[in-house]
């Protein structure tokens, strides 16, 4: 279970460029650190983040261990039609987390 925070407008006018902000709880473990026992902590990262809206991918990110723990992204999309915006994170071992935000376009 991961805690996810999303900041997005509930309503927008057609054609308006809206800001989307997402924050997810994840260590983004690099694989280069040692734990208290002196042993290397295994790499554990989110590899992709994808946003679909109105049936299309509108934003995608391929991530490396250089992204800080508890990744945060701020990006933009143009409001076209009312519908769900789906945010989906996929980890290196295939596990995924997603969250949906409903946008109403007036």
């Amino acid at each position: 279970m991961a805690t996810i925070r999303i900041a997005a407008p509930d309503t927008a006018s057609a054609g308006e460029v809206i800001e989307l902000k997402v924050l997810i709880q994840h260590p983004m473990e690099t694989g280069y650190r040692s734990g208290p026992d002196g042993k290397r902590i295994e790499r554990d990262i989110i590899e992709t983040f994808e946003v679909t809206y109105d049936g299309e991918t509108v934003f995608e990110a391929d991530l490396q261990p250089g992204i800080a723990a508890n990744p945060i992204f701020t990006f933009y999309t143009r409001a076209t039609t009312s519908g769900p915006i789906v945010f989906k994170w996929t980890g290196q071992d295939g596990e995924s987390w997603s969250e949906t935000h409903d946008l109403t376009v007036e």
Binding site: V17, E56, T57, V58, F59, E60, D62, T77, R78
Partner: peptide, 8 residues
């Protein structure tokens, strides 16, 4: 990051 015209 992959964007596109829809990013605005």
């Amino acid at each position: 990051f992959k964007l596109g015209p829809r990013a605005g």
